[in-house]
């Protein structure tokens, strides 16, 4: 048996990363277009119950590689194992969700296979017979079209959130599990994993906040944070921030919203001087009402905001504060 579309599952301690299901959805939709079937591959140590769980995810097969060398994630282990799986199965497409782990090993795998990886795609589309993969450049401000030529395997990673895991098609028969035995002896693991741990507990739990005023690099300097605190006070809101604001120490790290910070879903989210990079958006897109204030009308934040104000924040915010106080 061989595989048409191979989706790489991501797990830690046997727990599936939910974005894997997004990649399966991408695979299922692509499979319909191309008349191809989807298989999952999972790597790890002692993952039989995970494999069992995966059989119900609307795939034809679940391939597993179970090996001591894969008990902890390492780029050497994952790239070494997947290189062999892909060589043996020769899939037309290999799909990943563009997680931090995939960022860490997929380019290495691509280089080993000498097969380019089109990374962090936001969607695909058909252009006549051609399958076009769309990824963004300039931090989401511009889209770029790519296609593959010739036979696969073609490697594609999709941005987290690009496909909706709720659209998973699970009505078909359960997939079959196939354990692969690879020669892992030749795979040298140079990275020694010492620890996997959660960072210092957040002092503020923004996930409980009803209203958040988040500030971005558009506030320009630390002194201007005061004005934003006044806005937050007028709204009865907690302060949040984009990553660069925390990197620069204008607000403490535990105010960071996004993929490496907190995930929030308040009733009201103000994004002030924030461009709307995907790593920020994934942390706040489920907010109730989103207000964006940005001087750049093309800023991606306006794509997910409910209300937008295209203006200099230093002119608008004081007026918003007084309007709030008056009402």
């Amino acid at each position: 048996m061989s595989v048409d579309i191979l989706v790489v599952a991501e797990q830690r301690d046997g727990v599936l990363n939910r974005s894997t299901l997004e990649a399966v959805v991408a695979g299922q939709e692509l499979g319909k277009q191309l008349g191809k079937e989807v298989a999952l591959v999972a790597l790890g140590k002692g993952i039989s119950s995970l494999a069992e769980e995966l059989t119900s995810k609307g795939v034809k097969e679940v391939l597993t590689v179970d090996d001591d060398k894969l008990s902890d994630y390492t780029p050497d282990g994952y790239a070494g194992a997947l290189q062999q799986v892909i060589a043996a199965e020769n899939p037309a497409y290999v799909l990943f969700s563009h997680t931090y782990t995939v960022r860490d090993y997929a380019p290495k795998l691509a280089m080993k296979l000498e097969r380019p990886l089109v990374s962090d795609c936001v969607r695909y589309k058909m252009d006549g017979n051609a399958l076009v993969f769309v990824r963004q450049v300039f931090q989401g401000k511009i889209d770029a079209d790519f296609t593959f030529e010739g036979d696969g395997p073609h490697l594609v990673s999709f941005q987290v959130g690009a496909f909706n895991a709720d659209n998973l098609e699970t009505s078909g028969a359960a997939g079959a599990v196939r354990n692969l035995s690879l020669s892992m002896d030749n795979v040298e693991i140079r990275t020694k994993v010492l620890d996997v741990f959660e960072g210092v507990k957040q002092e503020v739990d923004l996930s409980k906040a009803d209203r958040i005023v988040s500030v971005g690099r558009g506030v320009k300097k630390s002194e201007n944070i005061e004005m934003m605190k006044d806005l937050a006070a007028a709204l009865g809101a907690e302060m949040g921030a984009s990553r660069p604001v925390c990197d620069d120490g204008w607000l403490p790290l535990d105010r960071q919203v996004g993929s490496s910070g907190q995930t929030v879903a308040p009733k009201l989210y103000f994004a002030v001087g924030i461009s709307g990079a995907i790593q920020h958006i994934v942390g706040m897109k489920n907010s109730g009402t989103i207000v964006a204030i940005n001087k750049d009308p093309h800023a991606p934040i306006f794509d997910i905001a409910d209300y937008g104000i295209v203006a200099d924040l230093f002119e608008v915010i004081p007026e918003v504060i007084s309007a709030l106080k008056e009402s």
Partner: peptide, 23 residues
């Protein structure tokens, strides 16, 4: 095997309601 074709301004799926006027 990977071909770059073109760049373009992203098609908007949703756009905020933009409020206009002086501050």
């Amino acid at each position: 095997s990977l071909k770059f074709h073109k760049l373009y301004v992203p098609e908007k799926t949703k756009q905020a309601e933009l409020l206009e006027g002086d501050p």
